[in-house]
Write a protein that binds this DNA or RNA. Structure first.
Lengths: 189, 189
DNA sequence: CCATGAAGTGATTGACCAGTCACTCACAAC
DNA sequence: GTTGTGAGTGACTGGTCAATCACTTCATGG
């Protein structure tokens, strides 16, 4: 019988494919309830081979998380670049818009939520801190905003995660509308 | 003693003990990686009996979460009561302080973080929405603040969760100080 | 043609875990 | 004193999952 894809490729290319699959699967189920086999199936790879590409499950999760923050940083940077003038508030606003666009598919968003919950694993906590540091420093340096304004930027990002996680724009209610007001939430696509 | 009704049912008392144990254990490991046996051991009970007190694992988690939000609401209410004057900003500030005191032991905080990550289970998502609705409405009604002020209150609460989860006050760094500035974080005790 | 190594897998192992069930034990009522 | 009831448990089941290992297949260079 013809085996699977059977196409030989470099292991580096495979690693990239597996990381993409890991982002999608870990975003769905979180760290603990997502089996390696799910990631392997999505990458069209045998579960065993995943362990040849990554030394263990945490390592794969961290790789996915690193890539996630890389994409976020890239989006923020791109957003800052398209701001009309040099007003810090405007620049942060554009960055927020770019972030909202990026997480429209919810994968990168849910991965961050699940990562926060899995932060009792030291390597995961380190990865989250690395990513958050990069994002925070980037928001500050590219916008030139005051510290408290950057802090508020991150805080509203967290609120955005909460809103999206709970589908507050669907589950209407006065309180839900209050929390979602003015927050750009993902259109479905 | 006298009649059936007057005798305290130890079953109900046990349920309360188990819920307390569940808060502590689920806060440590999250929903998926905390076995019922861990909760049972902390409650000094056999794992099997937990299933006689609660129909299943989710049901136990939801009970713990409900109790968590009940405590949060109580703390906020208490904080609002001790505000000096009627200024909405002052009242919200007092409520924030009361919340910071409540989550000093990190159990109630981490439980909320883990619940958000486990929100793909509908019953858990419902419980989180219930709790958040209660908290939001309480913050609004007791403070009389404008909607956007209440929204900011919740957003900074989420930021507070992030800071505590990642131990940003320990792991110093310029960006970490920026994010933690002015946020009352738990003293260790 | 064959040898070397890299790509990739099937089968298995050992551990863990949610949920079930038949059972014991203590106590109270008749 | 026996009969009924609720508290509580030991032992088991069916299933899942991370990680390992021996194995096969393929490409390439000498």
């Amino acid at each position: 019988m013809t085996k699977r894809g059977a196409t030989l490729s470099t292991s580096d290319a495979r690693r990239d494919v597996v990381v993409d699959a890991a982002i999608a699967e870990f975003a769905r189920g979180g760290y603990h309830s997502t089996p390696i086999s799910a990631v392997a199936a999505r990458a069209d790879i045998s579960p065993a081979y995943v362990f040849k590409l990554f030394p263990g499950k945490v390592s794969l999760f961290v790789a996915a998380l690193d890539r996630c923050y890389e994409l976020v940083a890239h989006a923020l940077s791109h957003g800052a670049a398209r701001a009309a003038d040099d007003d810090p508030g405007k620049i942060l606003h554009e960055m927020g818009g770019a972030y909202a666009e990026l997480i429209a598919d919810r994968n990168l968003l849910m991965l961050q939520v699940h990562a926060q919950s899995a932060a009792d694993t030291p390597e995961i906590a380190d990865a989250v801190r690395r990513g958050l540091a990069k994002v925070t420093e980037l928001a500050k340096s590219r916008s030139g905003a005051e510290d408290d304004h950057v802090q508020r930027f991150i805080a509203y990002g967290q609120l955005c995660h909460l809103i999206a996680t709970l589908d507050l724009d669907e589950h209407a209610g006065e309180w839900a509308a209050l929390l979602s007001a003015g927050i750009r939430h993902p259109g479905k696509s």
